[in-house]
Structures are given as C-alpha cells and as structure tokens.
Simulated scan of single mutants.
Amino acid sequence: MRTFMKSDFTCGFIGLGLIGGSIARAIRDFHPKSRILAYDINQEALQAALADGVINTALSAIGEELSVCDYIFLCAPVSENDSSLSEIKKYMSSTCLLTDVGSVKADIHRHIQKAGLSPQFIGGHPMAGSERTGYINSKTLLLQNAYYILTPCADISQEVICDFRELIASLGAIPLILTYKEHDYVTAAISHLPHVVAACLVNLIRQSDSPRGIMKLVAAGGFKDITRIASSSPVMWQQICLTNGENISGLLEDYIVSLSQIKEEIDRAGAEPLYQFFDQARVYRDSFTDASSGPIKKSFSIRIDIADEPGALAAIATILALHQISIKNIGITHNREQADGVLQVEFYEESSIQKAEEILSSKGYSIYH
C-alpha cells in the first residue's frame, strides 16, 4: 500500500449508499483528519452517517458547500449522476477532482466530455459489493484488497492521476488504471455476462419445472450457489445492459457459439473433446488469483458434517460465538445423498475461515469447502 501524503483534504459525496458509504467510512478510518460532506435524497442515511461520525456535514442540496472539496465522489444511480453534472460544475473549484463509482464507464465519460469536465475527471469502479444495499450495510472492509479500476480522461494530468491513485491505495484497495473502453469490455466479460447467464439459468429452471416444483426443491444447494448473482437488483442490471449493451451482446454471441459447440460434442458423445472442455476450464479457473473481493463478491464459507439431531446447529453456532467469530449466514444443505446433514456457514471475513476450521476440527467436526 502506498502512503498518501495529504491529511486534511475535503471530500464530497453525492449519494451515500453501500459503495459511497463504504468509501466514506474507509476515508474516515484511514484519514481521520479529513473532512467529509455528503448529499443524499435519503435523509435517514445522512443522519446515520452523522451519528456514526463518518461525515462532518449533511448537505440539504448540491450547493456552495462543495466549493471547498478536493474530491467529489458521484455515488448516486447513474441517471442521477448524469443529471447532477451541470449543477455540480457551478460549485466545483478548478483544483477539485471529480470521480464516480459506476460499473459502466463509457456513458459517464460521454457526459463528462459534454459538460467540459474532462480535465478534472477520473472514472472509478471499486470492484466490490454485496447482495445488500444502502448506507446501513456499508463497511470500511468492503474495499480491502478489492481491485479499484480508474479510467482517467485523456487530458487529465499525470500528477492528478498519481495523487488519486495513492488515495485509493491508502484505503486498502488495489488501483488499476484502464481506458474506459478497456474497462467496459473487461467487466462485460467477467461481471455483466455472468449475471445474464445466471438469470437465464434460473429462468430456464422456472420454465422447465414441473407443477410440483421438484427442480426448485432440489436447487437449494449447488444450483443456488452458482446462480447466487441472479438475486441482484433487476433495475441495476437492466441499466447495465442498456449502457454496456454492445460489449455484452458481442460476448453473449461468442458464448452462444461455445454452447453450440459443446452441445454438438454431447450429441455425438465425443468423449475426448468433452474431457478437454472440462479440463481446460478447470485448469484455467484454478489459475485465478484468490482475491477476496471482485465484481462478483467472494463468499467466505465452510461446510460441516453434522448429525441429524436436535441442537446440532445451535451447538456449532454457540462454539463460534464463544470464540468471537461472527456468522453472516448459516443453513442446512439438503441436496446430498448422505444420511446426515451438511451445515453451510458463511462469514463476513476471510480470516474467520481458518479460525473456525481450527476450533471446530479440534472438537471433532469434519470440515470441507
């Protein structure tokens, strides 16, 4: 992590939801002398941030107060950010850096160009998130070890880029500089397309299931895991498809071709091609960096064999609680052939996994991933 030299800078936030709130929390924790101003249509979020000591000032509107900002983060929905630019421009100082947190960059860059703000804009995309939304679910650790993509405008100075890159690194994130076109193609492949595919799979099961709902019944395990991202906000993904449609459509066409090819091998029972198909995917996936954050949030969980008897689940929860290990989610996995059950426990932090494994293994539990 590079050291960010400033200590008394001022940040403004337009929108204080999950991402905006998490960035503000990280700035407050890592730079306690900084001053943070925020505007959000949700007054409850602003009051909660004030009570938490995360922000210094809650703004009732986009106004003159923003003129003292060294950085302004656009963290509202994309359409609101676009419509706010002309108002923000009235109050921005000539030395203020404007940035955003949207997952599609071409659209905001077009609006920035049109507003004449290119020399003061670096697009931003913290590749971290949660199934939950709103300031109430924000947390400092959301940015930890997450790639934070930066897309500077062509006419912004290298000095400003380095300054902002150091600020992002000082928050525990990993800055990665790309052009906005590179960003949109990369995220279309590793984030946007998977969400489309997951939704397609879920809808296929919905349409193919029997009136008794047997598919839905047994989908609670592996199928539910691999399609977890289909539970994301339909409004958000509608907007992503509308703003990054060209990239998503192109990659979707390539994906359809690959599906047709593997269908042909299944139809003709091509043993070797089928093996190569799965083996190449396995080898390539196993080469991925095991980062804790990304556009599709990693789940920190373990599975535990438990006896099918009263109190079994409560016993494990109690053991973990006594050792100060917080549980994010806990539940029984039903779709397995063994007589006993499998308990899946999800944690908030990766560090909890090893600690929980050691404690539960010492008490005779069988743990696996």
Results as ranks from 00 to 15, higher is better:
residue 20 G to E: 06
residue 23 I to Y: 02
residue 27 I to C: 03
residue 29 D to R: 12
residue 33 K to R: 13
residue 38 A to Q: 04
residue 39 Y to Q: 02
residue 43 Q to Y: 00
residue 51 A to Y: 01
residue 55 I to R: 01
residue 55 I to D: 00
residue 57 T to R: 11
residue 58 A to H: 07
residue 61 A to P: 00
residue 64 E to W: 02
residue 65 E to R: 11
residue 67 S to F: 04
residue 74 L to Q: 09
residue 76 A to N: 04
residue 78 V to F: 12
residue 80 E to T: 15
residue 82 D to Q: 14
residue 82 D to F: 12
residue 83 S to M: 08
residue 85 L to E: 05
residue 86 S to N: 13
residue 96 C to F: 01
residue 101 V to H: 01
residue 102 G to N: 13
residue 110 R to A: 15
residue 111 H to E: 11
residue 113 Q to F: 04
residue 121 F to E: 06
residue 121 F to Q: 10
residue 122 I to T: 11
residue 135 Y to H: 01
residue 144 Q to I: 01
residue 149 I to A: 13
residue 153 C to S: 15
residue 153 C to T: 15
residue 161 I to N: 05
residue 163 D to E: 15
residue 170 S to Q: 10
residue 175 P to S: 08
residue 176 L to Q: 13
residue 178 L to E: 06
residue 180 Y to N: 15
residue 182 E to Q: 15
residue 182 E to M: 09
residue 194 P to W: 02
residue 196 V to M: 12
residue 199 A to R: 11
residue 206 R to A: 11
residue 215 M to F: 15
residue 215 M to C: 10
residue 217 L to Y: 12
residue 221 G to H: 05
residue 230 A to R: 04
residue 234 P to L: 06
residue 240 I to A: 09
residue 248 I to H: 04
residue 250 G to D: 08
residue 251 L to G: 08
residue 257 V to M: 11
residue 262 I to C: 10
residue 269 A to F: 08
residue 273 P to D: 10
residue 278 F to A: 14
residue 281 A to F: 01
residue 282 R to Y: 12
residue 284 Y to C: 04
residue 293 S to T: 02
residue 296 I to K: 04
residue 297 K to V: 12
residue 300 F to C: 05
residue 301 S to T: 07
residue 302 I to V: 14
residue 307 A to W: 00
residue 320 L to H: 05
residue 320 L to C: 05
residue 322 L to T: 09
residue 322 L to R: 14
residue 329 N to M: 04
residue 342 V to I: 15
residue 345 V to Y: 10
residue 348 Y to V: 02
residue 350 E to L: 12
residue 353 I to Q: 06
residue 360 L to G: 06
residue 364 G to W: 10
residue 366 S to L: 13
residue 366 S to Y: 07
